[in-house]
């Protein structure tokens, strides 16, 4: 595993795997070669393991990448190795190792789509792994962090059955095939129009910004921390961490639409823009009505566009009905 622009959150998430246990994976299931967080060796000794795998086992190893690809200053914001007196950048190492790997798996939001590191204004010009390996198909296991089952499930599928069926963004369909909204245990509340008005309530959290309807993941059935709970189970809305564009397109987390970035680094809420446009239109129409009335344009247009007949219609009187009734004040008269 190569770690580039990352918080190592996916490694920590992976530590929490249960059945198989973490020790099982390392000792019995996989030949885990190189991982900053798990290495016992350090420096050149550790790095040599990676280089040996690269040179001795071409097209036999799986490259896992955690963290975004940092492009600013030709990648020199992110040094990941020291080789023959030179600092090696993350994009160079991922590209070199990735081209000879049997499979390339990007883990976490940062490695898949850029993630929080690529958030606005993205000073490091970060992207996902696919951008530095355009000639290869990268298997994306997104999430912030990725669920340990998603990581391990993908690796086991690769080892046992080959490449899993992927969905539109290169993610395994078995984990990312359905929206959270469609499997949500609170879907009943949504369908009935019963919504939480604040975070912390037990109803559907759609109105407080839940991104479940636009997020593909199996969190509702898999849940987290050994299937103990998940965000919506804790009465907080889904923040859409598995989707491309996270976090910019998903923030603020408590409203539906993302804020619109303006030049100068500020952001404006979509709903405010909408209300502004509608307010401006209403004010313009009211102002125009007043001005048109004052100038007499409306009156003139109405007279011009309607027509007065040359002569009144001559109706033939067919029958006349006379209705007689007693006047109430007949006596007075």
């Amino acid at each position: 595993m190569i770690e580039t622009g990352t918080c190592t959150g996916d490694s920590i998430s992976f530590d929490n795997i249960w059945t198989p246990t973490f020790s099982d994976i390392f000792s019995n299931i996989l030949d885990w070669r190189y991982d900053w967080s798990m290495n016992q060796a350090q420096g050149n000794a550790a790095y040599q393991v990676l280089l040996d795998t690269y040179s001795k086992l071409p097209n036999e190893y799986i490259l896992l990448v955690q963290g975004s690809m940092i492009h600013s200053d030709s990648g020199h914001y992110d040094h990941v190795a020291y080789e023959q007196g030179k600092l090696i950048t993350g994009i160079d190492l991922v590209r070199r190792i990735g081209l000879k790997a049997k499979y390339v798996v990007a883990i976490g939001s940062c490695a898949t789509f850029g993630g929080p590191v690529s958030g606005y204004p993205n000073p490091t010009r970060s992207t996902g792994v696919q951008d530095v390996l355009p000639e290869r198909r990268v298997i994306n296991v997104s999430g912030c962090p990725a669920h340990p089952d998603w990581i391990m499930g993908t690796l086991l599928h690769l080892a046992l059955y080959g490449e899993p069926e992927l969905e539109k963004y290169g993610r395994p369909k078995m984990f990312y095939g359905e929206t959270i909204h469609n499997r949500c245990p609170r879907r009943y509340y949504y369908d009935q129009g019963i919504f939480a008005t604040d975070i912390g309530q037990k109803e559907c959290l759609y109105r407080v910004g839940c991104k479940g309807p636009v997020t593909y993941a199996d969190c509702p059935i898999r849940r987290w921390n050994d299937r103990l709970n998940w965000p919506i189970g804790c009465n907080t809305p889904c923040i859409g961490c598995t989707e491309p564009g996270y976090p910019d397109l998903m923030s603020p987390f408590t409203v539906h639409s993302p804020d619109i970035p303006l030049p100068g680094g500020t952001k404006i809420a979509t709903d405010s823009v909408a209300l502004g446009v509608l307010g401006f239109t209403s004010a313009a129409i009211i102002g125009h009505v007043a001005a048109s009335l004052y100038k007499g344009r409306i009156q003139r247009n109405l007279l011009k566009s309607t027509v007065r007949g040359k002569h009144r219609l001559s109706l033939i009187k067919v029958k006349t009905f006379h209705i007689y009734r007693v006047k109430k004040n007949a006596k007075k008269e």
Binding site: Y169, G245, M250, A274, T281
Partner: peptide, 21 residues
């Protein structure tokens, strides 16, 4: 368009255009 959320956002802005015009 770059995902479901951006798709939803575009549809919302089109709605606002209709509501304004």
């Amino acid at each position: 368009v770059g995902g479901f959320q951006r798709l939803r956002w575009i549809k919302f802005m089109i709605t606002i255009y209709f509501l304004a015009t």
